[in-house]
Nucleic acid binder design. Structure first.
Lengths: 95, 95
DNA sequence: GCTATAATTAGTCATATTCCTAATTAGTGT
DNA sequence: ACACTAATTAGGAATATGACTAATTATAGC
């Protein structure tokens, strides 16, 4: 869970996930919108992969990255737990 | 948003938020469950405060920390946006 | 085997995070 | 003013992060 939030804490990585929302993309395609060199992107992709947020598949010479929504759902659940897990929390008991 | 996810990326800080879910606590009370010195806790509390996840109020010599659910809801919305949120991303009731 | 393309790993450096100890601030009471 | 308690800020060291250049791997085609 730690890794998931850490992965989400960098704007480039959130942008990558946002791009992948519209479908899988190769490393090269993902590189274009960003102003960084390829190894930096690879680093971010590795962080996302370690966190389970993306999944990589090789097709010949290219590698395609796909969003893994399951891990993101875990983060969602964690935040919802912090919020009281429902839309309202009235847990202001005596203290 | 960056700061919120960064704040959530440390287990101690998520635990602090979890503790505050049951009601506001002082810095001293928050210190007890953790195996760290006071300045470290203060550091974590400052990170949470900067992210807007907690709010501090001084009552005499003590300072009471309160969970601010609004910021957490922002993080929730951000993750839901990444997920594509099934069909919509503005609902807080529907789940 | 050689070359070209796609992408990664290795290594380095600057900056950020996270912990600690020591010193300081803020408020209450004498 | 002085002491006591609650909590913070200051400063420093170890580790993690994020960027780069250069070298390497992986695959396809000739």
């Amino acid at each position: 869970m730690n890794q998931i939030f850490k992965a989400l804490s960098h704007p480039v990585r959130r942008e990558i996930l946002s791009l992948l929302r519209d479908g899988p993309m190769t490393s090269g395609e993902l590189l274009e919108p960003f102003d960084m060199k390829w190894p930096s992107l690879t680093g971010h992709l590795n962080v996302l992969k370690s966190a389970g947020l993306v999944h990589a598949e090789r097709y010949g010479t290219i590698i395609r990255y796909r969003l893994n929504t399951g891990a993101a759902e875990d983060a969602l659940a964690a935040i919802m737990a912090l919020l009281g897990s429902n839309s309202k929390q009235e847990s202001k008991n005596d203290n």
